[in-house]
Design a protein around this nucleic acid. Sequence first.
DNA 1: CGTCTTTGACCCGCGC
DNA 2: GCGCGGGTCAAAGACG
Length: 608
Amino acid sequence: MDRGWGALALGSDRNPISFFSPKSFTSRFKPVNSNANSAGRDLMVGGGDRSSSSSSFRMFQAAPPSPPPDHGGDNNDNDNDNRVAVDEVDFFSDRHQKTTTNSVNIKKENSHEEALNVNIGLHLLTANTGSDQSTVDDGVSSDMEDKRGKTSTTELSQLQVDLQKMNLENQKLKEMLSQVTSNYHALQMHLVALMQHQQQNQIVEGGKLSDDKKPESMVPRQFLDLGPSAAAAEIDHEVSNNISSSEERTQSGTPPNKTDIVSLDQDNSSIRDGKRINREESPESETQGGNWGPNKAQKLNNSTAAVAPAKSIDQSSAEATMRKARVSVRARSEAPMITDGCQWRKYGQKMAKGNPCPRAYYRCTMAVGCPVRKQVQRCADDRTILITTYEGNHNHPLPPAAMAMASTTTAAASMLLSGSMSSADGIMNPNLLARAILPCSSSMATISASAPFPTVTLDLTHSPNPLQFQQRPSQQTQFQVPFGGGVSGGSNVSTSQQLPQIFGQTLYNQSKFSGLQLSQDIMGPISHQLGGHQFTPPPPPSLHPPQSSSFADTVSAATAAITADPNFTAALAAAITSIIGGANNPYNNNNSNNTTNTSNKIGSFSGN
DNA sequence: CGTCTTTGACCCGCGC
DNA sequence: GCGCGGGTCAAAGACG
């Protein structure tokens, strides 16, 4: 395992890039911190073992980043006034967050301008409280006054007043931020609750509940596909429960779907049919057959069950349309593979038609039987672009680094699934979703669900607003959805269709600040795990196009809207910026584990 | 020695 | 029925 994990991420190469993990940052941008490279031989995936992701993350977080040049140690906090020269030492302490960028700048300027008279300048700026200041000034004030004259006193008092104001403002902002955060969480929870409720209703109403279907018994099994992964938050568990019901139904009721549904506990369980079964008998392969292969999963009507866990069997027709969504990430990278926080094992490589570059197949190895697969291939047109396509849901908890990808792709997948559902019913309504996800985007997205595998492509090659939703060129029916009136031209594929800055910036920034993570608090519930990949909350079956579908749309749209709401994010970004004092402040990384969410996401915003 | 990567072969579905 | 292409398997080799 030791090597394996390390090697996994790497694939065969040594320089994978990670867009979301702290490490990625290190690998790509030559971390200032020596620690960043500690990842071991492969830098990439986080160290080389399962904990790697988290460990690397921790490392990143733990290692106090060297104070960014921008922030000369800003010690505006009243408590620290005495330590003028020491300010930078505590640069990253919580207290310092209170300082506003303004204060930082002021101080910095003085420190530079004053040159050797550092003490003077610093004192003036840093001393917020009279007492502290006086203390420090005792040793220096005389010189100051001599040199500076009377003006220093007035300036000092002025600055003190300003600083106090700023502190107050910071406090207010923090309060606002916390309030917004709490509200957001509450809303999110409410949303999830609604979704669950809806799912339950559908399960009950939806038509055939096979006799053996017993809610109680559902727990252990998991839906490998789009279904929620057990590992996720409590919410996930609940959802999975709901799903599991459908799952059992499927197994007992509908034979054909076997491959799609896999019991984690019963890796070797027999439910599989056909020759494939033999192959899949190996623990790893078991889940594979059912979930990944388009040929299998998709072509079997039943396979759709995986897509819409909560659906009833009768909805097979509708489910058929609910094909597995794939989330493809396009990013420029010289590395053979991007590190997304998960551990992967390469199980195959093949030359794909129309592309001189081989396509590599990976499966998630973070947990036994994890159904998530991904394909990595370079773009034929531009080989600097690495295309990573994810499919399936993780059946295990994801490290923060992976959550970032999961969160990002979730929204995309949700939109796609919603669109596909609609399209299946002949009700294509991408606009709603697209707008929900990309309210502020001036770009457009192409949505198409007719293809065997609806695919959402997140194009990170056009940073900072790089996201693109697109359907595979090969896919037939395509819908181009103009956003915000902006219309970028033409081809649905890799053209300039860009998604909202939210996504784009988030990803882009993450690519830069590997340490930035979308906090699970923010995105987690939404994505559940998507392994970065698929939208977990199983959208209600398209069986009830108008209602369930609309509901699914609404949910996903609302979810996306919340996370993508420019106002929300802008406010948070502003608050964080003021607190942190800089977009590039490594401090942003700190929150990833803590899940105080907002900062992470915001960090990405401020990044630009 | 165990694990992972490589890679040819195989399976499957689809189109002709 | 045949060929093609996508996806996966599994033996052999590589690696630490």
